[in-house]
Design a protein around this nucleic acid. Structure first.
Length: 246
DNA sequence: TCAGAGCTAGATGTCCGTCC
DNA sequence: GGACGGACATCTAGCTCTGA
């Protein structure tokens, strides 16, 4: 975030309305001095929430972006997802499935990408696998997965010539306590939507018979060897005169 | 002289390390 | 895990500066 550019933008937007700093103070409840600091680009002394109030008070919006070593942050965020997908794809292939990765679709205005689309020719079973390294929104995850399961047979027929007799839906989560706790907290929801787990699930994967709605906790190989003490996530305190090293 | 903007000391709230 | 206290971040009131 370029402080001087942000400050210049705020000032330009304020002046465009012929407002004084005091007018902006009345409109947003943020003191004139704080507005002054922001317009001078001295954002170190300004809370993000306060900055947002001022920006929104000028009918603008605040976009905050975190960047790290070029595109390395995206790769870092994607690492766990990719590792889970790779683990599941390997297991499915070992059990005789043909696996396609990241199958994109666009049908009737609905767009997206199926993490893993697996096909077992002998039983003509199609499996729609959704991988979640972080379970943020449960409702959204289930809704999107449902959409993919609905569209998958048509996508599979069109793209690969697969004509399924049965369709399975599988949600994959990392086998940590955080994900298990989250699922336990919403047990009734998950039990209704994805009732098959554990041994029954593995049995179905080896020998699919009919449709399936399952939830699978898969060990996260990207975290292998990463030792964490009992206090994680660790607090990082920034002392004056120095930033914590990256 | 006055309006608008900049500066800063002090008040307040929050965070985080430590202890139990 | 909760309580406590010190350190720090953030905000504001009020004074000062600047330019018309």
């Amino acid at each position: 975030m370029d402080g001087r550019k942000v400050g210049a933008s705020l000032r330009a937007l304020r002046r465009r309305r012929a407002w004084r700093q005091a007018d902006l103070e009345r409109a947003t409840g943020v003191s004139r001095s704080a507005v002054s600091l922001m317009e001078l680009g001295r954002l170190d002394g300004v809370a993000i929430g306060t900055l947002r109030r001022v920006v929104e008070g000028l009918d603008a919006s605040l976009v905050i972006d975190v960047r790290w070593r070029g595109g390395a942050l995206d790769r870092l965020l994607d690492e766990r997802h990719a590792a889970l997908a790779a683990t599941v794809a390997t297991i499915l292939r070992t059990d005789g499935w043909h696996v396609e990765v990241e199958v994109s679709y666009s049908r009737y205005g609905e767009r997206g990408s199926i993490d893993l689309l697996a096909w077992q020719a002998s039983s003509r079973t199609l499996l729609v696998v959704e991988i979640k390294s972080e379970l943020t929104s449960i409702e959204e995850t289930l809704r999107k997965h449902d959409q993919k399961v609905r569209l998958a047979p048509a996508v599979a027929a069109e793209r690969f010539g697969w004509r399924p007799a049965a369709v399975g839906r599988l949600l994959v989560l990392p086998a940590g306590t955080a994900a298990r706790r989250r699922v336990a907290r919403h047990a009734s929801l998950f039990d209704a939507a994805l009732p098959v787990r554990g041994r029954a699930l593995r049995t179905w994967i080896r020998d699919p018979r009919g449709p399936l709605s399952g939830l699978w906790f898969v060990p996260d190989s990207s975290q292998a060897g990463v030792k964490r003490d009992r206090t994680t996530p660790q607090r990082v305190r920034c002392r004056s005169g120095g930033l914590p090293s990256a």
